[in-house]
Amino acid sequence: MSHRSLLQRLGRLGLAALTLAGTPLFADDSADARARWHQSIGDRYALLAEAGEQLEASAHAYCDAPDAERRARLEEDWLDAYQAWQAVRFVDFGPIEQQSRAWQLQFWPDSKNLVGRKVQLWLNAEAPPSIETIADDSVAVQGFPALEYLLFDEHMATPGALAAPQACGLLQAVSGHLADTGAALARDWQAFGDHYRQTESYTAATVQAGLQTLESLEDKRLAEPLGLAGSPANGYRAEAWRSARSVRLIESSLAGLQDSFLPGLRPLLAEAGQTELADDFAAALDETRRRAADMAPGLAPSLDDPEAFSDLQGLYVKIGQLSWLGRQIAGTLGLVSGFNASDGD
């Protein structure tokens, strides 16, 4: 298929286009940066594990005694955990690579509505699945988008739909699996610590993971659904379109970069004599995150609202500027665009 699909589908594989070619410009002892990253990323995985546990508890509480209050709490806990995942989603190496865990948490993009169909299959089954069954099933039914379907899809709009035994059983099984995945990630990240800290090449891998996230925010999470990437606007291409929370997720990704990516990046740039560049990047990141935080939570509903659409375009431009700074950083650190085997249609 043509080149457009390249960008469109890259994210499913989490492939990056930056390669460390030639001698890196950062010093041998980037171990300090890695130590900071290991700590700050570990903190974020711990938060994800906690939020997953809370979500699972909330699912049980709702199913035990479904009422409006518990339902509201469940939706909040779902969003909290989904946001906790966004904050650490930029890490595309280490334990997250096992068993397609990134897809397990969030199968996206899902242009053919696999999530909806896999969830429907379970809703129409004779008995709800166990956590173990979900763990062996399609990645499309294992993550936040599957729960989003149960909580927000129009098929679930009938009063009491979620409280029905089959739906509630599925809700609890998927939440339980998500909690397990979060706990495993937090644990495995700690076990991964020595190897990460001792392996020089993870410095480049971490930098490119952070910068790649900005590119994918710009190209896939905004330009594609907004219709700024060549094809017409299509709200279904946004993440979290069912709940209209796309912008909240973007905001959390930016917050995660602030908390977990900057701590190692700063000393790296300082060593290269680029403190100012680090300051500029940090300031732009903060401003962009604040901007996102002030915006309406969804993306698709804003496509038909000129004012909200212009906000989204503004955010898109801001993230583009961040990406540009990211490319300056990559150049400064000796990262060049290189072998990109991620083409695909």
């Binding site: 492939l15 990056a16 070619a21």
Partner: peptide, 15 residues
């Protein structure tokens, strides 16, 4: 780097 099913070894440093 670890794990066999990583689908992105190409981004690694080219010697």
């Amino acid at each position: 780097m670890p794990t066999p099913f990583v689908l992105r070894p190409l981004r690694r440093a080219i010697a």
